[in-house]
Design a protein around this nucleic acid. Structure first.
Length: 516
RNA sequence: GGGCCUGUAGUUCAGUUGGUUAGAACUCUCCGCUCAUAACGGAGCUGUCGCAGGUUCGAGUCCUGCCGGGCCUACCA
């Protein structure tokens, strides 16, 4: 991949009806790790996240709280910004769908679709769920608790709605979508999601209702102010807004569109893999390169829900386990894309085994040895032995491997590869036994310590995307200047003779609170 | 009803186009080391690879049926 090549990656915009929980943190952290990786690899990155602030649900929530919807959105949107700061997220932009630039972009996209004959006005009637933002067939409904009421299959309340709606000619895009999936086999990931989407599109694709008249909290439809735009049309457009649309001559638009990756939870892949590319094709705009639908976390084996009261916020977890540990856990614990379980036991296992014992202790045992036995000075190496070369090569071979894994979002495999080298390094310490060499061959001891320190430097540089704070501390301890921490710097080895500060552990063990 | 995915050591998972004694990590046991965050290294233990058939010289790996788990989607009421 050429240096300076653009990389545009997004999280979904989060619906401000929720407060940030582990699921939001998960998506954002994955994208953050990817964005950091690409920046370190010399790519020109645009990392976008933000909040989705329109729709009837929000309107009602605000009204229930007795406040203006905009005030409500301001308040809740701030929670997501706070989460980003807390989780050490390096987003380049934070977009809100209530911003003027976004309203402008959404209306421009609407007008473009209208101009191309992709939108028509029709009468629509059906059972509508405010919570799900969706219409249901009569046959799908289940009886509610009180006689006469009906519920959606999701358990949400539905109401009979009759209104005049604008429709998008989705049905027309069935074939082009199927062709696009076929010619872009990496468009939908993981693979299993592609099958789902394909079978959905192969069925009957109905035209999509894309406006509402029953409430006002949304982007007004240009030319017909009785209507506001369907929230998903409004929401998806955020990815264009952020790069300057409708100004297709804008520098950011030209650089970054189409997006390289939209990372989303598996619940919203249909909107991203069907509606979004259809809107774009219909508007004559390029389609994003890839949609990744990741899985869900359960908590201690149970589905997370408000009613069960096991709702885990990002704040709680970060406070309890630490931000780096949490980030590492989320990306390492399960194959990225699959569902997984978040348990205290598994979390502590990762912290203590992988971070503290393997990586943290490797750095500590080496650096502290240098501190005590080499006047705190990094030794100048003599000629390398085959064992040294093997050790160094293992570290050098990581970057190409990580490039592959990160570009496919198989973060767990990338981390596994890094930890394999950490294991090699721990073995190398034992085999070389610098504590014995200290008495028999101090020069050789120096070379061994140098090799280890150099390997630790590489490991620290490579783990920055996942554990940015700890990796930075480690690089500080190696006296690596701030501008020597990108992947290009991997090729420039440490210079012997540097005086190193007294080392401190960067990954503390998690110690259980004694039971009272 | 149709479709997709899935069921492998106590746990979480790998197992490439079917090929010699089924692997890793964590846990556990023993041994070694003593630089280090009671950390590191080595060895070992545990499996009828969901069940039953079939194809094959040979199947965890392909086919059929059944059982269990998850998901998408349709329809009748």
């Amino acid at each position: 991949m050429a240096a300076g090549e653009p990389f545009y990656v997004t999280t979904p915009i989060y619906y401000v009806n929720d407060s940030p929980h582990i699921g939001h943190a998960y998506t954002t952290v994955a994208v953050d790790a990817l964005a950091r990786f690409m920046r370190l690899d010399g790519r020109k990155v645009m990392f976008l996240t933000g909040t989705d602030e329109h729709g009837q649900k929000i309107d009602r929530s605000a009204r229930n709280a007795g406040i203006d919807p905009q005030v409500f959105c301001d308040r809740v949107s701030q929670n997501f910004r706070d989460m980003n700061v807390l989780m050490n997220v390096s987003n380049d932009q934070f977009i809100r769908t209530t911003e003027p630039r976004h309203i402008k972009a959404s209306q421009a996209l609407w007008l473009e679709l209208e101009k191309r004959g992709e939108i028509y006005l029709d009468k629509f009637a059906g059972w509508y769920s405010v919570r799900d933002e969706a219409f249901y067939e009569e046959s799908e409904l289940i009886p509610g608790k009180t006689p006469g009421t009906k519920l959606a299959p999701t358990g949400a309340e539905v109401e009979w709605v009759e209104e005049e709606n604008y429709f998008f000619r989705l049905s027309k895009w069935r074939e082009p979508l199927l062709e696009y999936y076929k010619s872009h086999p990496d468009f939908i990931a993981p693979r299993a999601r592609l099958n789902e989407i394909e079978s959905f599109v192969k069925g009957e694709l109905r035209d999509l209702s894309i406006s509402r008249t029953s409430f006002k909290w949304g982007v007004p439809v240009p030319g017909n102010e009785k209507h506001v735009m369907y929230v998903w049309l409004d929401a998806l457009t955020n990815y264009l807004t952020a790069v300057g649309y409708p100004d297709t001559d804008a520098a950011d638009y030209k650089t970054f569109w189409p997006a390289d990756l939209h990372m989303v939870g598996k619940d919203i892949i249909r909107f991203h893999c069907v509606y979004w590319p259809a809107f774009l094709m219909a508007a004559g705009l390029p389609v994003p390169k890839r949609i990744f639908g990741h899985g869900w976390w359960t908590v201690e084996g149970q589905k997370m829900s408000k009613s069960l009261g096991n709702f885990v916020t990002a704040n709680d977890l970060a406070a309890k386990y630490g931000v780096d540990s949490l980030r590492y856990f989320m990306l390492r614990e399960l194959p990225f894309g699959s569902d997984g379980d978040f348990s205290h036991r598994a979390m502590v296992g990762r912290i203590n085994s992988d971070l503290a014992n393997d990586f943290g202790n490797l750095a500590q045992r080496v650096l502290s040895f240098i501190h005590k036995n080499c006047d705190a000075t990094l030794p100048v190496p003599a000629a390398f032995t085959p064992a040294d070369e093997t050790m160094l090569k293992a570290a050098h071979d990581l970057l190409p491997k990580l490039r592959t894994e990160f570009s496919e979002q198989t973060f767990h495999r990338g981390l596994e590869a890094v930890w394999a080298v950490i294991g090699d390094a721990n073995r190398y310490v034992d085999e070389q036994a610098p504590w014995s060499l200290r008495k028999t061959d101090p020069a050789r001891m120096g070379t061994v310590l140098y090799v280890l320190t150099e390997v630790i430097r590489q490991l620290a540089i490579l783990t920055q995307p996942v554990v940015p704070t700890a990796a930075a501390k480690l690089l500080d301890q190696l006296c690596v200047p701030e501008d020597q921490r990108d992947f290009l710097a991997l090729a420039t080895p440490l210079k012997g003779g540097t005086v190193l500060p007294k080392p401190e552990g960067v990954f503390p063990r998690f110690v259980e609170e004694p039971k009272p």
